[in-house]
Simulated assay, not measured.
Amino acid sequence: MPVRAGAVAAAVDDVAGLLAAHDDPLELADGLVRHCRDLLDAAHAGLLVQDVQGHLQLLASTGDTAEALELFQLETRQGPCVDCHRSGTPVQCPDAEQLRQRWPGLWPVAERRGVAAVHAQPLVVAGRTIGVLGLFRDREGPLEPVELAVARAMASLGAVGITQLERVAAGQRVQEQLQQALDSRVVLEQAKGVLAERHRVSPEEAFAQLRAAARSQRRRLHDVARDVVQGSPAQPR
């Protein structure tokens, strides 16, 4: 599916709006991976960022498949996203055979999840790689030049956005604020589980409820998720 200029403009506008209106790395990361998945015709997308020790951690994903593939790479220290972070350069694995040969441990997980191609784009700020955008496709084939350009632009926007958000908190280092966002993800996953069980919905639908509640209440996503986990009366429905 060709990349449409209007869709790219709308995605950039939305991510820029998140950056301008919220001091919330989690919501920015979620918006980034969702837009990249849709713009670049990927089945799934994930975002890895460095913690205070310089280790990659999962900050956002579009669903269970992206989460499983990203976490497997982190646990085994192998895969296109890990290699992308190490080199600071994009990594393309356009077909299943290359995926099997280059990362034999990752291949069975990808195959079970229906992933046939993986593309990783580094998030770079001032020459430093702070994370990786992972795109997982259910069909083989390389990214076209225009898709590569869009992936690079979105990754750059995400890198600058995350860095800017972390600098909002006066007196705190970028890495410290980012660590808080990574820690917040644990609470977010707990809240998603609570809502999914309570309302008999999927984790993605539960996350949509949390995000909608955060926006309508003009609160941080972490704070709304914490209220759900703690059983606060004011909870998303």
Rank of each mutant, 00 (worst) to 15 (best):
G134W: 01
G79F: 08
V132K: 04
Q164W: 04
H119Y: 10
R152G: 12
S61N: 14
L133S: 06
T163Y: 08
E166Q: 12
E144A: 09
Q101C: 09
E70G: 04
V125A: 02
V124T: 14
L123H: 03
G171E: 09
E147P: 01
A120Y: 02
L106T: 10
A96D: 13
T89E: 14
R86V: 08
Q121E: 14
H119V: 05
C84I: 11
Q73A: 05
L133W: 02
V168N: 12
V146N: 00
L148G: 01
G161W: 09
P80C: 11
T65R: 15
V82S: 04
L59H: 04
P142F: 00
V82I: 14
A68I: 12
A68E: 15
F136T: 00
L71H: 06
G141A: 01
L74H: 02
Q78P: 01
G79S: 08
R128T: 09
F72V: 02
A126C: 00
E166Y: 06
L58P: 03
E111I: 08
G114I: 07
V118P: 05
P104G: 12
T89C: 03
R102E: 10
G131S: 00
A96Y: 08
E166A: 15
E97S: 15
T62D: 14
L143Y: 00
P122R: 03
A120P: 06
S156F: 05
R137D: 00
L143K: 01
E140L: 03
L71I: 11
V146H: 01
P90A: 13
A151W: 04
A169F: 03
G131E: 01
Q73S: 03
G161S: 05
E67Q: 14
C93T: 13
A66K: 10
G171K: 09
P80I: 10
L106E: 13
T62E: 13
P94F: 05
C84N: 07
R139E: 10
R100Q: 14
P90N: 10
A151R: 05
E75I: 01
E67P: 04
A96W: 07
V160Q: 05
P142M: 00
R128M: 00
F136Q: 08
Q172M: 07
L133A: 02
V91L: 12
R113S: 14
I162A: 02
H85N: 10
P94G: 08
A120V: 01
R77Q: 14
R139A: 13
L143W: 00
P142Y: 00
H119T: 07
Q92L: 07
T163C: 01
A96F: 08
L157M: 08
P94V: 03
S156E: 14
G158C: 02
P108L: 14
F72G: 03
A116R: 15
G63Q: 11
P122H: 05
R102S: 11
Q98W: 06
S61L: 10
Q73M: 04
E144I: 00
L69K: 11
L106P: 11
Q121R: 04
A116S: 13
Q98Y: 03
L59F: 08
D138V: 00
C93Q: 10
R139V: 12
G171F: 10
R167Q: 13
L143M: 04
A153F: 03
G171T: 04
E75S: 06
V115K: 13
V160H: 06
L74E: 07
